[in-house]
Structures are given as C-alpha cells and as structure tokens.
Write a protein that binds this DNA or RNA. Structure first.
Lengths: 138, 138
DNA sequence: TCGTGTTTGTTCAGTATCGAACTAACATGG
DNA sequence: CCATGTTAGTTCGATACTGAACAAACACGA
C-alpha cells in the first residue's frame, strides 16, 4: 500500500464521520446537547471519573471540567462523593441523562444508516465486515 | 445491524482516527503545521478556492480565512488573482508547501498503515471503493 | 509523623474558533 | 444601464477551548 493510498483512506473515513455527525446536529440541538458534551455523557457511566474521561476521550482535563459542569447544570449527570478518595468526583448519569444519551445514540445510528443506504445490501454487509476487521481488537 | 451496533461502530471509528491523528502530532509540530491547517493545505490544490475548501472540509468560511492566512504567512500557500472573477482568490501550494504536505501525509499514512495492515490489498481497495460510493453520491 | 512526590479536579488567562454583518464583484431581468 | 439578488472572502465581537498554575487529598518510605 502506497503512502498516499493509506492517507486517502484515512481522509475518506474522517469525512464519513464528519458527515454523519453534521447530520445529527439538529437532533442534538433539540436534545439540548453540544456535540462535545455528547461524547462525555456517553462515557460517563463507563469511566466514572473526570480523569478517566479525559484519558478515554483524549481531551484536556480542563475541557472535561467544562463539559461536565454543563451536563450537571442540565440535570443529565450528577456528582457524588467518593468516600474512598476525597479528591475524586464519582459521576453517574441521571434518568434523564440516560434517556438523552439513548436518543442521541439512536440519532447517530439513524444517520449512519441513511448514509449506508446509498449502498446495496451486499455492499453494506461488505463495508461492515471491513470496518469490523479494522476496528475489532480481535 | 442494531441501532447500538451502528453507533458503536461509529464511535470505534472515531476513536481510531483520533488515535492516529494524535500519533502524528509530533511530526506535525516539527513541520510547524497545526492539525486544522494540515487539512486545508492538503486540499488547497484540489479545491483551488477558499469557498470550495470550506464546503469540502465542512468548516466555516471564517475559519478557512484564518488557516489560509497562517499557511500563506508560512510560505506554504500563495494567493493569485483570478482574472475571471475578481472576488475569488485562486490558491496554490508553493514548492515548500508541497514538500510539507507530502511529509505530513507520509506521517499520517505511516500511523494509519499499522491499522490498515489488518486488511489485505484486495480489502483495502474494496474499502476505498465503498467509502467513495458513500461520500461521492454521483 | 514528616517530607516528598503524585494524582484529582478546578480556575484563570490567553488563544482559537466561528456566526453575523459587511464590502466588493458578479449575474440576471427588465 | 439600473435594480435586485447572489456569491466570495474578510472582519469583528462574542464564545469556546485549553495550557499552566493551583489547592486539596493521597502514598509511602524514612
């Protein structure tokens, strides 16, 4: 594989993600969710703590502080005291937070499906197979 | 494909691209290139004009103005008068611009190739075909 | 118990980004 | 030729982001 070849694939892939994300913008707006906030909300339950979120999402700690402040203000996430380590803020999504997250994920999946609709069934299966081959750490 | 499955695929893909991009950060630094600037530099020759760049990259016109200003200041891109339409700035990479772009693409490809290595040549070609079909609905 | 070194999350200040308004240059219809 | 509408690129003001410094809490060997 030539160098330009790999880079081109990278760019196409990047473009695909951007297109899908842009398509979700309206739904996210209705949910009152900023794009960046969504990524944080989505990982709150699996990461539990701000530091872990920053590491997982590869964004600065200062940014996590901001997104969390907004999510808490919106009532989508709540902070709890961690009795084991008073420095840490244990995080958890609220009921409403879970609902919003699910709606956002559905929107993302729906838009992805629309784009995928440009392919016929055979090609969709093929693309999914290739992406899985790339992404699954198997 | 279930809704969550599609979203999961999307998120994995997003993560993959971020990791690759982060891996390139040092090289880009050495080249004196900001990440966002790179995307602009990379498309200058194919898009020719700022408006086309904004559309292709899906970023605001105002941002394109800024990135171009920086690229021009660094001597990587130059603006020319378009005799056909005096509103437009025809853009072109300089010799140094082409060199820097190639180095950046090489870095990107090198990192991405590690992942792409999971596919054989036939599958990579297939993947590119499918991504093109998705993104260039001709 | 200290002293020293980490880690956690926040704050602050400087930079980056971008929506909206703007100017200049075309295009089209009359 | 003019009126009207559209498009190209820039500027400006307001917001978003983040590196660096910070305070608090932990860890652990001496």
């Amino acid at each position: 594989m030539s160098s330009d070849d790999a880079a081109q694939l990278w760019k196409l892939n990047q473009r695909l993600l951007t297109v899908v994300m842009n398509s979700c913008a309206d739904t996210f707006d209705e949910l009152g969710l900023e794009t960046k906030e969504f990524f944080v909300l989505d990982e709150v339950d699996t990461c539990q703590y701000p530091a872990a979120l920053a590491a997982k999402l590869m964004i600065p700690k200062a940014s996590v502080t901001m997104y969390l402040r907004s999510l808490v203000a919106k009532g989508l996430v709540r902070r709890e005291i961690d009795d084991q380590d008073l420095r840490r803020h244990r995080l958890a999504t609220t009921d409403r937070g879970r609902e919003v997250r699910q709606r956002a994920l559905d929107a993302l999946a729906a838009e992805f499906a629309i784009i995928m609709g440009r392919l016929d069934q055979r090609d969709r299966d093929e693309l999914r197979r290739l992406l899985h081959a790339l992404l699954d750490p198997s």
